[in-house]
């Protein structure tokens, strides 16, 4: 019934809609329908975003100050930003590399194979598997009493922690972060890699190119934007991650998210009242730069994926 009715109805309503001075009233009433969502987004997204960006410029009594922003170049704060950038760079580089290798290995299986479908399904679960649960997974694996720690000690006589327990320090974040970075890379890079057309290898072979020529002249140039885009996404992902670090590292604030925690929980950090605002501003600025670069790369990637 619905199917047969649609064509004439559309014509009918078009003509009635176009008639005369109804325009403004017809727009006004549906426009009211946008109000609830607009108000909701204003209160719970836009105002908090603006507050997060601006509280750094004010002291507790509401007077304007450069004091907190100046703290962004304080050696302690610079060091946490350095740590955050370093861990993001490392886990994004390793994650992108290993993720790309997994994608490459998957190429030798048919796109419709059960294996590829299940690797993609598992990746989408693990890419979401962040937070405190991930911290417990690694405490159970390489914690002091973890399965791997005990196995290495009992079977091979190898001590995972000859010195201090690095799982609860900055280096302890690397493995858990890779656990969600690699699957995320698989999810983002696989479409680009599957987009390489067999016709291109054939063209390369017909023209006498070797496999090396193909990758150097065609494969790598075509995939580079997608790889770089995936790397940026991974970088942003670990740069903004908080829960895993919060659950693993209970003392100190080695990375920016943990320093925001400290600044929010204790009244003053480094003798400043609204340091959390300045730190949030710093984080958001870096994230916006990453996201702009990512969307620019996306546009280049899309060119080859038609």
């Amino acid at each position: 019934m619905t199917q047969t009715g649609s064509a004439p109805v559309r014509r009918l309503s078009r003509t009635s809609g176009g008639a005369g001075g109804w325009g403004s009233a017809q727009r006004l009433i549906p426009g009211l329908g946008l109000v609830p969502f607009a108000l909701y987004v204003l209160i719970f997204l836009l105002i908090p975003t603006v507050l997060a960006l601006t509280t750094g410029f004010f002291n507790r009594s509401g007077a304007f100050t450069w004091d907190n922003i100046a703290a962004l170049v304080d050696p302690t704060v610079l060091k946490t930003f350095g740590n955050s950038l370093w861990i993001s760079l490392l886990t994004a580089a390793l994650g992108a590399l290993v993720g790309a290798i997994v994608c490459y290995a998957l190429l030798s299986f048919s796109p419709t194979s059960r294996l590829r479908a299940s690797v993609e399904a598992v990746s989408s679960v693990l890419a979401q598997f962040g937070g405190v649960m991930l911290a417990f997974a690694f405490i159970a694996t390489i914690g002091v009493q973890g399965l791997l720690t005990v196995l290495l000690k009992d079977v091979f006589g190898v001590a995972l922690y000859p010195g201090e327990i690095w799982l609860y320090q900055m280096p302890g974040l690397i493995l858990p972060y890779l656990y969600f970075q690699i699957p995320l890379m698989v999810l983002t890079f696989m479409p680009a890699l599957s987009g390489l057309k067999p016709a291109w290898t054939e063209a390369n072979a017909t023209l006498g190119g070797s496999s090396w020529t193909f990758w150097r002249r065609v494969g790598i140039p075509v995939l580079a934007p997608a790889f770089a885009g995936g790397f940026l996404l991974l970088f942003a992902n670990s740069f903004s991650a908080y829960a895993t670090a919060a659950a693993l590292i209970s003392q100190g604030s080695q990375i920016v998210p943990l320093q925001i925690r400290t600044a929010l929980i204790s009244e003053t950090v480094l003798g400043r009242e609204n340091l959390a605002g300045a730190l949030a501003l710093g984080m958001i600025v870096i994230m916006i730069v990453l996201m702009l670069a990512y969307s620019a790369l996306q546009a280049r990637t899309a060119r080859w994926q038609k």
Partner: peptide, 24 residues
């Protein structure tokens, strides 16, 4: 609007959410 929550990390957004939470 719908992608903003991805670009703004939750740990940064919470700085602005705290006063909104208190007021609401």
């Amino acid at each position: 609007i719908t992608v903003i929550p991805i670009a703004i990390p939750a740990i940064a957004l919470v700085v602005g959410l705290a006063p909104v939470f208190g007021a609401s």
